[in-house]
Write a protein that binds this DNA or RNA. Structure first.
Lengths: 187, 187
DNA sequence: ATGAAAACATGCCATATATCAATATTAAAA
DNA sequence: TTTTAATATTGATATATGGCATGTTTTCAT
C-alpha cells in the first residue's frame, strides 16, 4: 500500500520507489495532543507539517487578545507559518491542535536540501506555492464581495467536514464575523 | 547603465551580462494607453507583465456589475492573473491601465522555457511566488482584524504614492468599502 | 476654451454586523 | 455520575458601513 504522502506528492509529480524512500527519509513523525502547539508567536518556524491525522488551526492574536483564524488544516494538508518559515523571521502566529494529531514534518534544512538535490521536489513545492497563492487570492475576493452569510455558505459547501470537527466560533473567526452573528445566519 | 529589470532580478539572484541578455531576449515591450486592457474576463492569460512605466489595476466584476479591485501595480511590479496564467484557464478578472503604460511582458511559453533552461530563473520565480503568497496572507489578516479606517491608514502608510495616482473610489474598492464611507474616513 | 463626464463630498436613512448580557446546551473533567 | 467548563443561542442595543440623492469640483475630450 502506497504511503499517503507519496500519493499526495504524486498528484503533482511521479516518483520512483527509491525517490520516495529518499524523500521520506527527510521527514519525521510526531504525535501531538489536542491543545498542543506546533508553533507559537515569537518562534521561528523550523518545520513544515503534513497532517496524517487530526485537525489544527493557525491564528493570530490582536491587541485585544481576540483570535483571528488564518486557516484550518486537516488530513493531507500542509501547514506552517509560511512567512516565518520562508523568510526565517519570528512568527506572529500560533498553530495548535484542535484534536489529537499525528503529523509528519520536514525541517527547514531538509526541505532546502531536498529542494536543491531533487529537482522534482523543487517543482513540487513551487507548484504548491502557486496553488497556495491562488487559494489566498480567492479568499480575498470572497472577503471583498461576499456577505457573511454568503461566505458561510461557500465554506460549508467547500469543506462540509470542517463543520463537524471545529467549533462554530472558530468558523466565525475564520470568516471574519462574530460568533453571535454566525449563530444567527442560519435563521 | 543596468536595465531596471536586471536590477530587479538581481535583488534576488545575481546574473552575468550574458545571462541577463538571454533572459531579456525572452521579453517583449509594449505600450498601452490609459483604459486599455492587458487581460479581459474569459481570456486565458498568456503573458506576465512587468511595468516599466505607468499604473494598472486588476479587478473583478460581480453579478451586479460592481468592481472589486484585487490589486494595483506600478513601476517595477509584476502583474497578470496568476490563476489563469498558472493553470491556463479562462480568467475571471480584468486588468487595465490607469495611466499610459510602458510594459515588458513574457509569454507563458517563454517563461516555461526560461524556467527549465535556467535554474536561476526557476529560483527567482519560486521566490517571487512565495513572497506573493506572504503578501496576500497579510492582506487577509488586515481584512479580518482591521476596520476600514485602519486599513486605509495602513495602505496610505505603505503606498503613499498610490494615493496621488489612483482615484479614491478605487482605493475604496481595494479596501472593500464603499466610496462614500472612504470619503468620510478622514473626518 | 468649453461642455461632458468623472470624481468627490455630504446629508439622510436603511441594513448588516458588533457588542453586551443572559441563558441554554453540550462536552469535558473529576 | 456529578460538576465544571466550553460552546451555542437569543434578545436588546449600539455602531459601522452601505446605498441613494444631490450639489460641487476636478478632469478629460474635443
Amino acid at each position: 500500500m502506497t504511503h499517503p504522502l507519496r500519493q499526495h506528492i504524486e498528484e503533482i509529480i511521479d516518483l520512483t520507489d527509491e525517490e520516495f524512500e529518499y524523500i521520506f527519509s527527510h521527514f519525521e513523525t510526531v504525535k501531538k495532543r489536542k491543545h498542543q502547539y506546533l508553533i507559537q508567536e515569537g518562534e521561528i518556524a523550523q518545520k513544515e507539517y503534513w497532517i496524517l491525522k487530526g485537525c489544527v488551526k493557525s491564528y493570530f492574536l490582536d491587541e485585544n487578545g481576540k483570535e483571528h483564524i488564518l486557516r484550518f488544516a486537516m488530513e493531507h494538508w500542509w501547514i506552517t507559518d509560511y512567512e516565518s518559515f520562508v523568510i526565517q523571521t519570528p512568527s506572529n502566529i500560533y498553530i495548535d491542535c484542535l484534536e489529537d494529531c499525528e503529523l509528519l514534518y520536514i525541517s527547514y534544512e531538509n526541505r532546502d536540501k531536498l529542494t536543491s538535490e531533487m529537482h522534482k521536489m523543487e517543482r513540487f513545492w513551487a507548484k504548491k506555492s502557486k496553488l497556495g497563492r491562488i487559494a489566498l487570492q480567492k479568499r480575498i475576493l470572497s472577503l471583498l464581495k461576499n456577505s457573511a452569510k454568503e461566505r458561510y455558505d461557500l465554506l460549508l459547501e467547500q469543506y462540509p467536514k470542517l463543520f463537524q470537527r471545529v467549533p462554530k466560533k472558530m468558523i466565525a473567526s475564520y470568516l471574519g464575523v462574530s460568533r453571535e452573528t454566525l449563530s444567527r445566519l442560519n435563521s
